[in-house]
Design a protein around this nucleic acid. Structure first.
Lengths: 110, 110
DNA sequence: GCTATTACCTAGACAGACAATGCATGGAGC
DNA sequence: GCTCCATGCATTGTCTGTCTAGGTAATAGC
């Protein structure tokens, strides 16, 4: 994956996944992988720093659990996180529309 | 414009503009601005390094002209540049589809 | 004992976009 | 004559986000 395009969308996708219920690092990777049609394989070196960043910004909360001898750190969206997600979705749509405009591609909601 | 999203799409948009005929820095900025609906205002600090980068990669060729006392450096797409643009367009579509998939947004060609 | 999978984490490298700045010309307004 | 703005090229330094590459540790299967 030589994809520079990801910059700025990773956090949005992580927030999106967490908007549908608490999850943990490893599971978030799997979810994004499947929901992107196998396209986006988050790397730990991006994922964990991003999770910590978002938690510092109070967009996520967290708690530890134990499952079959392995510890898991669950993250969940805060109210501020939900607002941030909405903003990022709006921004993404405007961005994608702008790029498609330059490319001469006309897309519309199905 | 606090837009990290641009990473990786700048070059594509510049190539796209140049695919419709030779142009120069200042004009490229104007073209992208108008075709993105006023959304993307390329900065010199991004534009010129990118132009030089693309020229080094032989995706662009260039020549100087003089216009009303001001010198202009025109850039034009090479055959390799056209191929690269096609590849980037394909990559962009796959990327946007992936992101929209994660966001649960269904888009289709109008 | 070895390996794969699950699960967490970090340090450092790297790239790309930006702000700031510089230089130069021509035309409009005062 | 002077200043300001738009045009037009370019570079430097900074910031930030992603990735590479490493580390720890438990469980299960061979």
């Amino acid at each position: 994956m030589d994809n520079k395009l990801l910059t700025g969308t990773l956090e949005m996708m992580m927030l999106e996944v967490l908007s549908q219920g608490p999850s943990y690092g490893y599971e978030i990777v799997q979810t994004v992988l499947s929901r992107s049609g196998g396209h986006f394989e988050l790397k730990e070196g991006s994922l964990y720093p991003a999770l910590h960043r978002l938690e510092r910004q109070k967009l996520l909360g967290s708690y530890w659990t134990e499952h079959e001898g392995r510890r898991r750190k669950y993250y969940k969206l805060t109210a501020a996180g939900r607002k941030a997600l909405d903003a990022k979705r709006t921004e993404w749509k405007a961005f994608a529309t702008g790029v498609n405009g330059v490319l001469g591609i006309e897309y519309g909601l199905v």
